[in-house]
Amino acid sequence: MNYRSYFKSEWLSLLRRKQDTLNALLFFVMVITLFPLGVDPSSEFLSPAAGGIIWCATALAILMAVEGMYKEDYNDGSLEQWLASGLSVSILVFLKVFAQWVMVVVPLLLVLPLLAQMLFLPASALGVLMCSILLGTPALFFIGSIGAALTVSLRRGAVLMLLLILPLYIPVIVFATGAVRAAQMEMAYSGQLAILGAISLVALALSPIMAAVSIRASVN
């Protein structure tokens, strides 16, 4: 095994398991549908809330996608092979998360304009919303991968993983929705986007190391 063959196989397995990605996406749409139904379908409520609704749904959908990311590798012994391969586990984690991020976020960005329209988000803010998704979601994936690594050996780890990871998502959600709101009010939003990017970079630097420690501890 080397990094290239691993990365290729990771893609291949994500493509073979498209249904998992599709499920996360459908879940995202479902959560968004609940808000007009459960709270208020008028544009007076939805238009200012759209950024927040979309971001909360994104965070939940990503948690769902990330939660089981190592499950199969754990069950079929691949994680043991990672450790025995002599390759850096952090880099393997990074490659895996990157592949997963592309698989989930690209289709998400494609459906986003439609959903933003349904939530009456002004067209001027759509670009900022997409930028915030692009800059903020890497942090969600990388932080989530730590939780997934910690709970991989538990049969019912999903709820525990939500409890561990969701609080850490708060800053991303706050700054992302802040950027969208600022754009809606025609104020400067570049600061929030910059912070989102910074959070993602920090997560990118530290999470693979933490996830590697957790994987090492999980496998034994």
Binding site: I143, L164, S214, A217
Partner: peptide, 10 residues
């Protein structure tokens, strides 16, 4: 190990 990771990340 797990609580150490969680507290540090926290």
């Amino acid at each position: 190990k797990a609580v150490a990771v969680v507290s540090l990340v926290g």
